[in-house]
Amino acid sequence: MNEKVKELQIIATQIRIDIIQMLVQAGSGHSGGSLSCADILACLYFSIMRHNPKDPHWKERDRFILSKGHACPALYAALAEAGYFKKEELLTLRKLNSILQGHPDMNKTPGVEFSSGSLGQGFAAAFGMALGYKLDKNPGRIFVLLGDGECQEGIVWETAMGASHYGLDNLTAILDYNNLQIDGKVSEIMEIAPIAEKFRAFGWTTYEIDGHDIEQILWALSPERIVEGKPTMVIARTVKGKGVSFMENEVDWHGKAPSPQEAERALAELYKQLEELKGNGRADS
């Protein structure tokens, strides 16, 4: 196996371990949607993006905006792993005086590019950032992660229209398509399919990938996939709760934190995955 891929799988698994440890400590938070985007975040922060944790405001950096802000445990874990702040901070999630709010806060957490959580706004803000970068001829790229349920918000489509109207090829959106939202299956609550066709109709270049396959993620997010004059949408098929058997595809794990006993079981599974990856190099991918 490619060493880079394995390294990213290890980081993604470490992010999942951190997510569980943060959530059990916090006693509340969003497990499922944090676990589903761990591989995507590992690829962004540890391979794709040009950024500098020692200089978070570096002008030409690539930026990442978590528009599905409730998945912030995954973002915080990635930022800590990258060195934006100390890993010990992770256990203060959702506690009084913490730099880690229940949803992302750009003024409290180093590396968080925008305050998000009210769905759709992060996407529109990313659009504004991409517009600002174009105006400055800034070579940086803007990445934004959306949830599938989030695409039910009108502002998502206002933004989809705007980004292609202004030809923002420096904007890459990723859809964490796990097909679950708070009240049930996305397809049953309010169908968003055919989502790729919708974004294409709005003028976007689309790619559909397995959102847990590192090689596919790296391929889709590579600058080579950009079509000049068009924003890019990567539709990543994911599994909500990925990596923890009893959380996978279970809607109840959307907005719930594990109990100490559940966390213990989850961590046992994740540490086993980590050992397999670090051990014989024949980890399943």
């Binding site: 504004g128 600002g132 502002i155 705007g162």
Partner: peptide
């Protein structure tokens, strides 16, 4: 003209987009 952005009829997007522009040092 290059510093003017018509958002079309979409005030919600306009406000969040203005916020995004502000993060890049603009005064929207």
């Amino acid at each position: 003209p290059n510093r003017f952005f018509n958002m079309g009829i979409s005030e919600c997007k306009m406000i969040s987009c203005a916020a995004g522009l502000a993060t890049t040092g603009k005064i929207p």
